[in-house]
């Protein structure tokens, strides 16, 4: 198909033009996570004609995804497809001129640098801070710009990060939140329009960077709430100088080196995995129980909380130190995913 026709409206747009479009076509991007944000980001980047997109995700498509994860449909659930594969199939139909590299994988310190090899930009579609801190370390190490985005309920935030130039994620967030300290989409819910706006802000930053116009990307934290109808740009310009950041000022790579990160242990013969969070912090089981009411059947005593998920397939037993035993799987990736979704980290 003639490329000029496909991208004609984008080339007409003054901010991009023919030169910007040629640069976008040559651009190589790593997208971490193909959930709600990830599928909206992938859809936009592939339509915009990015040259190469590596998509990494550890999960499978589920019915509760379809309300907001724009690349998936009921057929993907019937075929029990991993998200990276289902996404790649759709994206290939949308734009056959983009080279796609789908990977069904759990991003950890052993594979992060390989995933980031040979890309110009990393875009964040993750659902947990542990992986974001790992992305941050890898981006600093390889001097690759990346775009943080997070979304829950009706609100979210976006921050582009240029290693060595602007505040990094650890300048903004000193450490991963303790277990149960943040809302997750599986406990607080999320609406599609919030996802789409956050993803759109990430893609705008990505397109500017790929088009060679990073001078137009503000080093700001954009915060948006679509239910309230607010969008604000918060100044984080000199946070890097003020934060004495362990990662970008002192050069520590705690997450990339494997020094930090959750610990998982397969409990042999029990069809269960124990997940210990990266931050040891007392967790209020009562508050967590309140948040999990809609997720399944919750029971609690002074020592533990038990959540039996609606399908009956998995059971999460959470202890006051944040540790959890996920029953119903001996797959560490599945267990980490369930922990991030229901306990949060």
């Amino acid at each position: 198909m003639p490329s000029d026709e496909r991208y004609s409206r984008q080339i007409l747009f003054q901010g991009i033009g023919a030169e910007g479009q040629a640069r976008i076509r040559a651009g190589r991007v790593l997208l971490c996570g193909c959930g709600a944000l990830g599928s909206a980001i992938a859809d936009s980047l592939v339509r915009a004609g990015v040259g190469f997109l590596r998509l990494v995700d550890r999960d499978f498509v589920e019915l509760s995804n379809l309300q907001r994860q724009v690349l998936y449909d009921e057929q993907d659930i019937a075929e029990q497809l991993p998200k990276a594969i289902a996404a790649s199939r759709k994206l290939a139909k949308i734009n056959s001129g983009v080279t796609l590299e789908p990977l069904v994988a759990d991003i950890d310190h052993t594979n992060m640098l390989a995933l980031a090899a040979g890309v110009d930009l990393i875009v964040d579609g993750m659902d947990n801070f542990e992986t974001r801190f790992l992305i941050n370390d890898a981006a600093l190490e390889k001097k690759i710009p990346w775009v943080y985005g997070g979304c829950v309920g009706s609100h979210g935030q976006v921050m582009p990060i240029f290693p060595g130039e602007t505040a990094c994620l650890r300048c903004l967030i000193g450490d991963v939140p303790g277990p149960g300290m943040t809302e997750t989409c599986d406990t607080a819910g999320v609406i599609g329009p919030a996802v789409n706006v956050v993803a759109a802000l990430q893609v705008v930053a990505a397109l500017k960077i790929l088009a060679g116009r990073r001078d137009l990307v503000d080093a700001t934290l954009s915060i948006v709430d679509v239910w309230d109808g607010t969008l604000r740009k918060m100044n984080v310009g000199n946070l890097r100088e003020r934060s004495n950041c362990p990662a970008c000022a002192l050069g520590e790579r705690d997450w990339l080196s494997g020094k930090r990160g959750s610990q998982t242990t397969v409990l042999c013969g029990r069809n269960a995995v124990q997940v210990s969070p990266p931050v040891k912090q007392a967790l209020s089981l009562t508050e967590l129980a309140g948040r999990l009411q809609s997720a399944g059947e919750v029971s609690q005593n002074a020592f533990l909380l038990r959540l039996s998920l609606s399908g009956g397939e998995f059971q999460l037993t959470v202890f006051p130190d944040g540790r959890a035993i996920i029953k119903g799987t001996d797959d560490v990736t599945v267990a980490r995913s369930l922990y991030a979704r229901y306990v949060g980290a």
Partner: peptide, 10 residues
Amino acid sequence: VTILPAVSGG
């Protein structure tokens, strides 16, 4: 004054 938690969902 805006008190803002980091957002982990995605």
